[in-house]
Nucleic acid binder design. Structure first.
Lengths: 238, 238
DNA sequence: GCCTTATGCCAACACCATTGACCTTATACG
DNA sequence: CGTATAAGGTCAATGGTGTTGGCATAAGGC
Protein backbone atom coordinates (compact mmCIF):
# COMPACT_ATOMS: atom_id res chain seq x y z
CA UNK A 1 0.00 0.00 0.00
CA UNK A 2 1.53 3.32 -1.10
CA UNK A 3 0.26 5.32 1.87
CA UNK A 4 3.36 6.23 3.91
CA UNK A 5 4.86 9.00 1.77
CA UNK A 6 8.56 9.41 2.43
CA UNK A 7 9.59 13.07 2.75
CA UNK A 8 12.28 14.23 0.37
CA UNK A 9 15.03 14.58 2.97
CA UNK A 10 14.55 11.03 4.25
CA UNK A 11 15.03 9.42 0.86
CA UNK A 12 18.04 7.11 0.54
CA UNK A 13 17.47 4.49 -2.07
CA UNK A 14 16.86 6.16 -5.37
CA UNK A 15 15.90 3.33 -7.60
CA UNK A 16 15.81 4.44 -11.22
CA UNK A 17 12.68 3.96 -13.22
CA UNK A 18 12.41 1.40 -15.99
CA UNK A 19 13.83 3.85 -18.47
CA UNK A 20 16.66 5.03 -16.22
CA UNK A 21 15.45 8.40 -15.00
CA UNK A 22 15.76 8.98 -11.25
CA UNK A 23 12.71 10.59 -9.71
CA UNK A 24 12.64 13.28 -7.04
CA UNK A 25 10.07 15.60 -5.56
CA UNK A 26 11.49 18.61 -7.37
CA UNK A 27 11.75 16.77 -10.70
CA UNK A 28 8.10 15.81 -10.46
CA UNK A 29 7.04 19.36 -9.60
CA UNK A 30 9.09 20.82 -12.45
CA UNK A 31 7.64 18.35 -14.90
CA UNK A 32 4.16 19.16 -13.64
CA UNK A 33 4.84 22.87 -14.22
CA UNK A 34 5.93 22.06 -17.76
CA UNK A 35 2.85 19.97 -18.41
CA UNK A 36 0.63 22.75 -17.11
CA UNK A 37 2.30 25.24 -19.40
CA UNK A 38 2.03 22.99 -22.43
CA UNK A 39 -1.38 21.43 -21.97
CA UNK A 40 -3.26 24.07 -19.99
CA UNK A 41 -4.57 24.00 -16.46
CA UNK A 42 -6.72 20.93 -17.14
CA UNK A 43 -3.83 19.08 -18.75
CA UNK A 44 -2.24 17.91 -15.53
CA UNK A 45 -3.16 14.34 -14.66
CA UNK A 46 -1.40 11.52 -12.91
CA UNK A 47 -1.38 9.49 -16.10
CA UNK A 48 0.03 12.26 -18.26
CA UNK A 49 2.61 13.07 -15.60
CA UNK A 50 3.62 9.44 -15.51
CA UNK A 51 3.91 9.47 -19.27
CA UNK A 52 6.11 12.57 -19.23
CA UNK A 53 8.36 11.13 -16.50
CA UNK A 54 8.24 7.67 -18.08
CA UNK A 55 7.03 6.06 -14.89
CA UNK A 56 3.84 4.46 -13.71
CA UNK A 57 1.21 6.93 -12.45
CA UNK A 58 1.00 5.09 -9.15
CA UNK A 59 4.66 5.78 -8.51
CA UNK A 60 3.76 9.41 -7.87
CA UNK A 61 1.92 8.32 -4.76
CA UNK A 62 5.27 7.40 -3.22
CA UNK A 63 6.11 11.11 -3.32
CA UNK A 64 2.75 12.80 -2.76
CA UNK A 65 -0.34 11.68 -0.89
CA UNK A 66 -2.43 12.47 -3.96
CA UNK A 67 -2.89 14.99 -6.71
CA UNK A 68 -4.05 17.53 -4.14
CA UNK A 69 -0.79 17.23 -2.24
CA UNK A 70 1.06 17.68 -5.52
CA UNK A 71 -0.78 20.89 -6.31
CA UNK A 72 0.19 22.25 -2.90
CA UNK A 73 3.82 21.49 -3.72
CA UNK A 74 3.42 23.29 -7.05
CA UNK A 75 2.05 26.33 -5.26
CA UNK A 76 4.94 26.37 -2.84
CA UNK A 77 7.38 26.10 -5.72
CA UNK A 78 5.83 29.25 -7.21
CA UNK A 79 6.26 31.19 -3.96
CA UNK A 80 9.80 29.89 -3.59
CA UNK A 81 10.80 30.95 -7.06
CA UNK A 82 9.14 34.34 -6.52
CA UNK A 83 11.37 35.21 -3.57
CA UNK A 84 14.54 33.41 -4.69
CA UNK A 85 17.49 35.72 -4.16
CA UNK A 86 15.43 38.41 -2.50
CA UNK A 87 16.51 40.09 0.72
CA UNK A 88 15.22 43.09 2.67
CA UNK A 89 16.82 46.43 1.86
CA UNK A 90 15.82 48.27 5.01
CA UNK A 91 13.14 50.41 3.35
CA UNK A 92 9.94 48.70 4.45
CA UNK A 93 7.80 50.27 1.76
CA UNK A 94 10.14 49.33 -1.08
CA UNK A 95 10.50 45.85 0.38
CA UNK A 96 6.78 45.19 0.57
CA UNK A 97 6.28 46.56 -2.90
CA UNK A 98 8.96 44.27 -4.27
CA UNK A 99 7.62 41.20 -2.47
CA UNK A 100 4.09 41.89 -3.70
CA UNK A 101 5.12 42.44 -7.27
CA UNK A 102 7.40 39.41 -7.23
CA UNK A 103 4.71 37.05 -5.98
CA UNK A 104 2.21 38.51 -8.41
CA UNK A 105 4.72 38.15 -11.23
CA UNK A 106 5.52 34.55 -10.35
CA UNK A 107 1.87 33.58 -10.51
CA UNK A 108 1.29 35.47 -13.73
CA UNK A 109 4.37 33.81 -15.24
CA UNK A 110 2.77 30.40 -14.68
CA UNK A 111 -0.90 31.17 -15.14
CA UNK A 112 -2.05 27.60 -15.60
CA UNK A 113 -0.19 26.49 -12.48
CA UNK A 114 -1.51 29.48 -10.56
CA UNK A 115 -5.07 28.48 -11.40
CA UNK A 116 -4.55 24.98 -10.11
CA UNK A 117 -2.92 26.01 -6.85
CA UNK A 118 -4.94 29.17 -6.36
CA UNK A 119 -6.24 30.20 -2.97
CA UNK A 120 -4.63 27.37 -1.04
CA UNK A 121 -2.77 27.66 2.23
CA UNK A 122 0.03 25.18 1.75
CA UNK A 123 1.87 25.49 5.05
CA UNK A 124 4.99 24.43 3.16
CA UNK A 125 8.47 25.88 3.71
CA UNK A 126 8.54 28.61 1.08
CA UNK A 127 5.14 29.94 2.05
CA UNK A 128 6.14 30.05 5.69
CA UNK A 129 9.34 31.89 4.77
CA UNK A 130 7.39 34.50 2.79
CA UNK A 131 4.95 35.11 5.64
CA UNK A 132 7.80 35.41 8.12
CA UNK A 133 9.56 37.89 5.85
CA UNK A 134 6.54 40.16 5.45
CA UNK A 135 5.83 40.16 9.18
CA UNK A 136 9.47 40.92 9.89
CA UNK A 137 9.54 43.87 7.50
CA UNK A 138 6.49 45.39 9.15
CA UNK A 139 7.72 44.87 12.70
CA UNK A 140 11.14 46.36 11.91
CA UNK A 141 9.41 49.33 10.28
CA UNK A 142 7.94 50.13 13.68
CA UNK A 143 4.40 48.82 13.43
CA UNK A 144 3.03 47.39 16.68
CA UNK A 145 1.89 43.77 16.55
CA UNK A 146 -1.80 44.53 16.02
CA UNK A 147 -1.19 46.88 13.08
CA UNK A 148 1.41 44.50 11.69
CA UNK A 149 -1.09 41.68 11.53
CA UNK A 150 -3.85 43.84 10.06
CA UNK A 151 -1.63 45.23 7.31
CA UNK A 152 -0.06 41.84 6.68
CA UNK A 153 -3.52 40.37 6.22
CA UNK A 154 -4.64 43.00 3.72
CA UNK A 155 -1.32 42.89 1.89
CA UNK A 156 -1.07 39.15 1.46
CA UNK A 157 -4.73 38.62 0.63
CA UNK A 158 -4.80 41.38 -1.95
CA UNK A 159 -1.62 40.09 -3.54
CA UNK A 160 -2.85 36.51 -3.80
CA UNK A 161 -6.33 37.56 -4.87
CA UNK A 162 -5.09 39.72 -7.75
CA UNK A 163 -2.45 37.19 -8.69
CA UNK A 164 -5.11 34.53 -9.06
CA UNK A 165 -7.49 36.79 -10.93
CA UNK A 166 -4.83 37.96 -13.36
CA UNK A 167 -3.46 34.46 -13.82
CA UNK A 168 -6.94 33.25 -14.67
CA UNK A 169 -7.44 35.83 -17.40
CA UNK A 170 -4.08 34.86 -18.85
CA UNK A 171 -4.58 31.11 -18.62
CA UNK A 172 -8.07 30.82 -19.98
CA UNK A 173 -7.72 32.41 -23.42
CA UNK A 174 -4.70 30.27 -24.25
CA UNK A 175 -6.65 27.16 -23.44
CA UNK A 176 -8.40 26.31 -26.66
CA UNK A 177 -11.46 25.11 -24.77
CA UNK A 178 -12.65 28.29 -23.12
CA UNK A 179 -13.76 31.20 -25.21
CA UNK A 180 -13.62 33.84 -22.49
CA UNK A 181 -11.46 36.05 -24.63
CA UNK A 182 -13.68 35.74 -27.65
CA UNK A 183 -16.48 36.74 -25.35
CA UNK A 184 -15.05 40.23 -25.16
CA UNK A 185 -15.01 40.67 -28.87
CA UNK A 186 -18.14 38.71 -29.73
CA UNK A 187 -20.45 39.86 -26.94
CA UNK A 188 -19.25 42.99 -25.18
CA UNK A 189 -17.89 44.85 -28.19
CA UNK A 190 -21.06 44.50 -30.22
CA UNK A 191 -23.73 45.14 -27.62
CA UNK A 192 -26.39 47.51 -28.94
CA UNK A 193 -26.28 50.99 -27.42
CA UNK A 194 -30.05 50.81 -26.98
CA UNK A 195 -29.90 48.18 -24.23
CA UNK A 196 -26.39 48.77 -22.86
CA UNK A 197 -25.43 52.37 -23.62
CA UNK A 198 -22.58 52.61 -21.09
CA UNK A 199 -20.88 49.42 -22.20
CA UNK A 200 -21.25 50.40 -25.84
CA UNK A 201 -19.78 53.83 -25.11
CA UNK A 202 -16.85 52.42 -23.17
CA UNK A 203 -16.19 49.39 -25.37
CA UNK A 204 -13.02 50.69 -27.04
CA UNK A 205 -11.52 51.90 -23.77
CA UNK A 206 -12.49 48.66 -22.04
CA UNK A 207 -10.82 46.58 -24.73
CA UNK A 208 -7.47 48.28 -24.18
CA UNK A 209 -7.58 48.53 -20.38
CA UNK A 210 -9.03 45.20 -19.35
CA UNK A 211 -5.98 43.34 -20.66
CA UNK A 212 -3.68 44.96 -18.07
CA UNK A 213 -3.55 44.26 -14.35
CA UNK A 214 -4.99 46.64 -11.76
CA UNK A 215 -2.74 45.16 -9.06
CA UNK A 216 0.09 47.75 -9.01
CA UNK A 217 -2.38 50.55 -8.42
CA UNK A 218 -4.11 48.71 -5.62
CA UNK A 219 -0.78 47.81 -4.06
CA UNK A 220 0.41 51.40 -3.99
CA UNK A 221 -2.86 52.50 -2.43
CA UNK A 222 -2.42 49.95 0.32
CA UNK A 223 1.13 51.11 0.98
CA UNK A 224 -0.03 54.74 1.04
CA UNK A 225 -2.48 53.92 3.76
CA UNK A 226 0.11 51.99 5.74
CA UNK A 227 2.59 54.85 5.51
CA UNK A 228 -0.04 57.28 6.78
CA UNK A 229 -0.75 55.05 9.75
CA UNK A 230 2.95 54.78 10.56
CA UNK A 231 3.31 58.56 10.43
CA UNK A 232 0.36 58.97 12.78
CA UNK A 233 1.92 56.53 15.19
CA UNK A 234 5.19 58.45 15.12
CA UNK A 235 3.51 61.77 15.91
CA UNK A 236 1.71 60.35 18.89
CA UNK A 237 4.84 58.91 20.52
CA UNK A 238 6.97 61.98 19.83
CA UNK B 1 -27.41 13.81 -30.95
CA UNK B 2 -27.92 16.33 -28.13
CA UNK B 3 -25.88 19.07 -29.77
CA UNK B 4 -28.34 21.85 -30.71
CA UNK B 5 -29.01 23.36 -27.29
CA UNK B 6 -32.36 25.13 -27.26
CA UNK B 7 -32.27 28.42 -25.36
CA UNK B 8 -34.71 28.75 -22.50
CA UNK B 9 -37.01 31.22 -24.20
CA UNK B 10 -37.44 29.03 -27.30
CA UNK B 11 -38.61 26.00 -25.37
CA UNK B 12 -42.16 24.88 -26.12
CA UNK B 13 -42.58 21.21 -25.48
CA UNK B 14 -41.76 20.44 -21.91
CA UNK B 15 -41.86 16.70 -21.74
CA UNK B 16 -41.76 15.50 -18.14
CA UNK B 17 -39.02 13.13 -17.07
CA UNK B 18 -39.66 9.51 -16.22
CA UNK B 19 -40.56 10.42 -12.68
CA UNK B 20 -42.77 13.36 -13.62
CA UNK B 21 -40.61 16.40 -12.89
CA UNK B 22 -40.45 19.01 -15.62
CA UNK B 23 -36.94 20.30 -16.27
CA UNK B 24 -35.92 23.87 -16.96
CA UNK B 25 -32.69 25.81 -17.12
CA UNK B 26 -33.32 27.52 -13.81
CA UNK B 27 -34.34 24.31 -12.07
CA UNK B 28 -31.10 22.68 -13.16
CA UNK B 29 -29.02 25.64 -11.97
CA UNK B 30 -30.79 25.73 -8.61
CA UNK B 31 -30.28 22.03 -8.12
CA UNK B 32 -26.62 22.42 -9.04
CA UNK B 33 -26.29 25.15 -6.40
CA UNK B 34 -27.82 22.82 -3.83
CA UNK B 35 -25.51 19.99 -4.81
CA UNK B 36 -22.51 22.28 -4.52
CA UNK B 37 -23.57 23.36 -1.06
CA UNK B 38 -24.19 19.82 0.11
CA UNK B 39 -21.32 17.94 -1.48
CA UNK B 40 -18.63 20.59 -1.77
CA UNK B 41 -17.12 22.21 -4.82
CA UNK B 42 -15.99 18.86 -6.23
CA UNK B 43 -19.39 17.28 -5.69
CA UNK B 44 -21.00 18.64 -8.84
CA UNK B 45 -21.08 16.12 -11.66
CA UNK B 46 -23.44 15.35 -14.49
CA UNK B 47 -24.19 11.99 -12.94
CA UNK B 48 -24.99 13.35 -9.50
CA UNK B 49 -27.03 16.15 -11.01
CA UNK B 50 -28.99 13.63 -13.02
CA UNK B 51 -29.54 11.61 -9.88
CA UNK B 52 -30.80 14.65 -7.96
CA UNK B 53 -33.14 15.67 -10.80
CA UNK B 54 -34.11 12.05 -11.44
CA UNK B 55 -33.17 12.24 -15.08
CA UNK B 56 -30.46 10.77 -17.26
CA UNK B 57 -27.18 12.70 -17.14
CA UNK B 58 -27.21 13.06 -20.90
CA UNK B 59 -30.47 15.00 -20.67
CA UNK B 60 -28.53 17.95 -19.29
CA UNK B 61 -26.85 18.31 -22.64
CA UNK B 62 -30.20 19.37 -24.08
CA UNK B 63 -29.96 22.48 -21.87
CA UNK B 64 -26.22 23.18 -21.72
CA UNK B 65 -23.43 22.49 -24.16
CA UNK B 66 -21.45 20.85 -21.37
CA UNK B 67 -20.51 21.16 -17.74
CA UNK B 68 -18.49 24.27 -18.56
CA UNK B 69 -21.55 25.99 -19.98
CA UNK B 70 -23.45 25.01 -16.84
CA UNK B 71 -20.84 26.58 -14.57
CA UNK B 72 -21.12 29.83 -16.51
CA UNK B 73 -24.86 29.75 -15.90
CA UNK B 74 -24.24 29.17 -12.20
CA UNK B 75 -21.93 32.16 -12.07
CA UNK B 76 -24.47 34.37 -13.76
CA UNK B 77 -27.12 33.21 -11.30
CA UNK B 78 -24.89 34.36 -8.44
CA UNK B 79 -24.47 37.82 -9.96
CA UNK B 80 -28.19 38.01 -10.67
CA UNK B 81 -29.14 37.15 -7.12
CA UNK B 82 -26.56 39.61 -5.80
CA UNK B 83 -28.20 42.58 -7.49
CA UNK B 84 -31.83 41.44 -7.30
CA UNK B 85 -33.95 44.34 -6.12
CA UNK B 86 -31.09 46.79 -6.14
CA UNK B 87 -31.36 50.23 -7.70
CA UNK B 88 -29.14 53.30 -7.70
CA UNK B 89 -29.83 55.85 -4.97
CA UNK B 90 -28.07 58.80 -6.56
CA UNK B 91 -25.06 58.75 -4.25
CA UNK B 92 -22.39 57.19 -6.41
CA UNK B 93 -20.14 56.27 -3.53
CA UNK B 94 -22.86 54.55 -1.53
CA UNK B 95 -24.06 52.81 -4.68
CA UNK B 96 -20.67 51.39 -5.57
CA UNK B 97 -20.10 50.30 -2.00
CA UNK B 98 -23.42 48.49 -1.95
CA UNK B 99 -22.83 46.81 -5.29
CA UNK B 100 -19.39 45.63 -4.25
CA UNK B 101 -20.52 44.30 -0.90
CA UNK B 102 -23.55 42.62 -2.47
CA UNK B 103 -21.54 40.78 -5.09
CA UNK B 104 -18.96 39.82 -2.49
CA UNK B 105 -21.69 38.62 -0.16
CA UNK B 106 -23.39 36.57 -2.87
CA UNK B 107 -20.17 34.72 -3.64
CA UNK B 108 -19.37 34.18 0.02
CA UNK B 109 -22.91 32.89 0.58
CA UNK B 110 -22.27 30.15 -1.97
CA UNK B 111 -18.58 29.48 -1.50
CA UNK B 112 -18.49 26.15 -3.29
CA UNK B 113 -20.32 27.57 -6.28
CA UNK B 114 -18.07 30.62 -6.26
CA UNK B 115 -15.02 28.42 -6.48
CA UNK B 116 -16.37 26.59 -9.49
CA UNK B 117 -17.40 29.68 -11.42
CA UNK B 118 -14.60 31.93 -10.20
CA UNK B 119 -12.67 34.15 -12.54
CA UNK B 120 -14.87 33.51 -15.53
CA UNK B 121 -16.27 36.12 -17.88
CA UNK B 122 -19.70 34.73 -18.64
CA UNK B 123 -21.10 37.37 -20.96
CA UNK B 124 -24.55 36.33 -19.76
CA UNK B 125 -27.41 38.73 -19.05
CA UNK B 126 -26.93 39.37 -15.32
CA UNK B 127 -23.21 39.97 -15.68
CA UNK B 128 -23.83 42.44 -18.49
CA UNK B 129 -26.44 44.23 -16.39
CA UNK B 130 -24.04 44.57 -13.47
CA UNK B 131 -21.28 46.00 -15.66
CA UNK B 132 -23.70 48.42 -17.23
CA UNK B 133 -24.90 49.54 -13.81
CA UNK B 134 -21.41 50.23 -12.47
CA UNK B 135 -20.41 52.16 -15.56
CA UNK B 136 -23.61 54.15 -15.38
CA UNK B 137 -23.09 55.10 -11.73
CA UNK B 138 -19.60 56.38 -12.48
CA UNK B 139 -20.61 58.35 -15.55
CA UNK B 140 -23.52 59.98 -13.75
CA UNK B 141 -21.20 60.87 -10.87
CA UNK B 142 -19.27 63.01 -13.32
CA UNK B 143 -16.27 60.89 -14.19
CA UNK B 144 -15.09 61.28 -17.79
CA UNK B 145 -15.00 58.08 -19.87
CA UNK B 146 -11.30 57.37 -19.32
CA UNK B 147 -11.49 57.66 -15.52
CA UNK B 148 -14.75 55.75 -15.51
CA UNK B 149 -13.16 52.79 -17.23
CA UNK B 150 -10.06 52.85 -15.04
CA UNK B 151 -12.03 52.96 -11.80
CA UNK B 152 -14.52 50.41 -13.08
CA UNK B 153 -11.65 48.06 -13.86
CA UNK B 154 -10.08 48.38 -10.42
CA UNK B 155 -13.44 48.16 -8.69
CA UNK B 156 -14.74 45.06 -10.44
CA UNK B 157 -11.44 43.20 -10.33
CA UNK B 158 -10.92 43.93 -6.67
CA UNK B 159 -14.44 42.79 -5.86
CA UNK B 160 -14.22 39.56 -7.82
CA UNK B 161 -10.68 38.81 -6.63
CA UNK B 162 -11.56 39.17 -2.95
CA UNK B 163 -14.86 37.38 -3.42
CA UNK B 164 -13.06 34.39 -4.88
CA UNK B 165 -10.34 34.42 -2.25
CA UNK B 166 -12.80 34.64 0.62
CA UNK B 167 -15.09 32.05 -0.91
CA UNK B 168 -12.16 29.69 -1.21
CA UNK B 169 -11.24 29.97 2.44
CA UNK B 170 -14.86 29.30 3.36
CA UNK B 171 -15.38 26.42 0.96
CA UNK B 172 -12.25 24.44 1.58
CA UNK B 173 -12.52 23.74 5.32
CA UNK B 174 -16.03 22.37 4.94
CA UNK B 175 -14.81 19.93 2.35
CA UNK B 176 -13.66 16.99 4.36
CA UNK B 177 -10.87 16.32 1.91
CA UNK B 178 -8.74 19.41 2.26
CA UNK B 179 -7.14 20.22 5.58
CA UNK B 180 -6.37 23.86 4.91
CA UNK B 181 -8.04 24.93 8.11
CA UNK B 182 -6.26 22.36 10.20
CA UNK B 183 -3.08 23.72 8.65
CA UNK B 184 -3.46 26.89 10.65
CA UNK B 185 -3.70 25.12 13.93
CA UNK B 186 -1.31 22.27 13.19
CA UNK B 187 1.45 24.14 11.37
CA UNK B 188 1.30 27.89 11.87
CA UNK B 189 0.26 27.97 15.50
CA UNK B 190 3.03 25.64 16.65
CA UNK B 191 5.98 26.92 14.67
CA UNK B 192 9.05 27.23 16.88
CA UNK B 193 10.08 30.81 17.63
CA UNK B 194 13.65 29.87 16.82
CA UNK B 195 13.02 29.45 13.11
CA UNK B 196 9.95 31.69 12.62
CA UNK B 197 9.95 34.31 15.40
CA UNK B 198 7.54 36.74 13.75
CA UNK B 199 4.92 34.11 12.98
CA UNK B 200 5.22 32.69 16.47
CA UNK B 201 4.84 36.15 17.96
CA UNK B 202 1.81 36.99 15.84
CA UNK B 203 0.14 33.56 15.98
CA UNK B 204 -2.67 34.50 18.37
CA UNK B 205 -3.48 37.72 16.51
CA UNK B 206 -3.30 35.91 13.17
CA UNK B 207 -5.70 33.23 14.34
CA UNK B 208 -8.38 35.80 15.17
CA UNK B 209 -7.87 38.11 12.19
CA UNK B 210 -7.32 35.71 9.32
CA UNK B 211 -10.85 34.36 9.60
CA UNK B 212 -12.37 37.72 8.60
CA UNK B 213 -12.34 39.32 5.16
CA UNK B 214 -10.08 42.22 4.26
CA UNK B 215 -12.40 43.24 1.44
CA UNK B 216 -14.41 46.04 3.11
CA UNK B 217 -11.21 47.87 4.05
CA UNK B 218 -9.76 47.58 0.58
CA UNK B 219 -13.05 48.67 -0.97
CA UNK B 220 -13.23 51.83 1.12
CA UNK B 221 -9.65 52.69 0.20
CA UNK B 222 -10.55 52.42 -3.47
CA UNK B 223 -13.58 54.65 -3.04
CA UNK B 224 -11.47 57.18 -1.10
CA UNK B 225 -9.11 57.43 -4.02
CA UNK B 226 -11.94 57.78 -6.51
CA UNK B 227 -13.55 60.54 -4.44
CA UNK B 228 -10.26 62.44 -4.33
CA UNK B 229 -9.94 62.22 -8.10
CA UNK B 230 -13.48 63.48 -8.58
CA UNK B 231 -12.79 66.41 -6.27
CA UNK B 232 -9.65 67.29 -8.22
CA UNK B 233 -11.63 67.20 -11.44
CA UNK B 234 -14.21 69.54 -10.01
CA UNK B 235 -11.61 72.10 -8.91
CA UNK B 236 -10.03 72.22 -12.35
CA UNK B 237 -13.27 72.91 -14.18
CA UNK B 238 -14.46 75.50 -11.65
C1' DG C 1 27.28 -11.14 -0.02
C1' DC C 2 23.10 -11.06 2.48
C1' DC C 3 18.66 -8.90 4.21
C1' DT C 4 15.61 -5.42 4.58
C1' DT C 5 12.79 -2.35 2.73
C1' DA C 6 12.15 1.63 -0.23
C1' DT C 7 10.29 2.20 -4.38
C1' DG C 8 8.84 1.16 -9.08
C1' DC C 9 5.25 -1.52 -11.63
C1' DC C 10 0.83 -3.91 -12.75
C1' DA C 11 -4.03 -4.65 -12.72
C1' DA C 12 -8.20 -3.31 -11.17
C1' DC C 13 -11.91 -0.28 -9.34
C1' DA C 14 -14.98 3.38 -9.31
C1' DC C 15 -15.91 7.57 -11.01
C1' DC C 16 -16.13 11.18 -14.59
C1' DA C 17 -17.90 13.87 -19.20
C1' DT C 18 -19.56 13.23 -23.50
C1' DT C 19 -21.90 11.31 -27.61
C1' DG C 20 -24.82 8.69 -31.09
C1' DA C 21 -28.86 6.06 -31.72
C1' DC C 22 -33.31 5.18 -30.28
C1' DC C 23 -37.86 6.04 -28.65
C1' DT C 24 -41.86 8.68 -26.86
C1' DT C 25 -44.80 12.09 -26.42
C1' DA C 26 -46.32 17.14 -26.56
C1' DT C 27 -47.50 20.21 -29.65
C1' DA C 28 -48.73 22.55 -34.44
C1' DC C 29 -51.16 22.28 -38.21
C1' DG C 30 -54.37 20.42 -41.58
C1' DC D 1 -60.18 16.11 -34.11
C1' DG D 2 -56.31 13.42 -36.02
C1' DT D 3 -51.86 13.03 -37.54
C1' DA D 4 -47.03 14.33 -38.62
C1' DT D 5 -42.97 16.29 -36.64
C1' DA D 6 -39.33 17.03 -33.92
C1' DA D 7 -38.13 18.30 -28.96
C1' DG D 8 -36.45 16.10 -25.54
C1' DG D 9 -35.80 11.96 -22.34
C1' DT D 10 -33.24 7.42 -22.20
C1' DC D 11 -29.79 3.77 -23.11
C1' DA D 12 -25.35 2.07 -23.98
C1' DA D 13 -20.75 2.75 -24.96
C1' DT D 14 -16.15 5.20 -25.16
C1' DG D 15 -12.21 6.90 -23.32
C1' DG D 16 -10.68 9.70 -19.77
C1' DT D 17 -9.62 10.37 -14.47
C1' DG D 18 -7.62 9.42 -9.35
C1' DT D 19 -6.51 5.90 -6.40
C1' DT D 20 -5.13 1.39 -4.20
C1' DG D 21 -3.48 -3.54 -3.01
C1' DG D 22 -0.28 -6.79 -4.30
C1' DC D 23 3.92 -7.93 -6.23
C1' DA D 24 8.72 -7.67 -7.81
C1' DT D 25 13.29 -5.82 -7.63
C1' DA D 26 17.27 -3.52 -6.70
C1' DA D 27 19.82 -0.29 -3.45
C1' DG D 28 22.41 0.23 0.59
C1' DG D 29 23.61 -0.89 5.46
C1' DC D 30 25.65 -4.46 7.71
Amino acid sequence: MPKPVVPEEKRRRRRPTRSGTVLSESLIVETALRLLREHGSAGLSARRLGLALDCDPSTLYRYFRGMDDLTLAIGDALVGQALRGWGPTGSWRADLRTVGLRIHAAYVAHPQAALVTANRVTGRPHELAADEAVLDVLRRAGFPPADTVRIYHAFIDQTLAFATLDAASLALPSAALSADDAMWRSTYARLPAATHPRIAEAAPLLATRMVTSAYPTALDMLLDSAAAQLAALGERTD
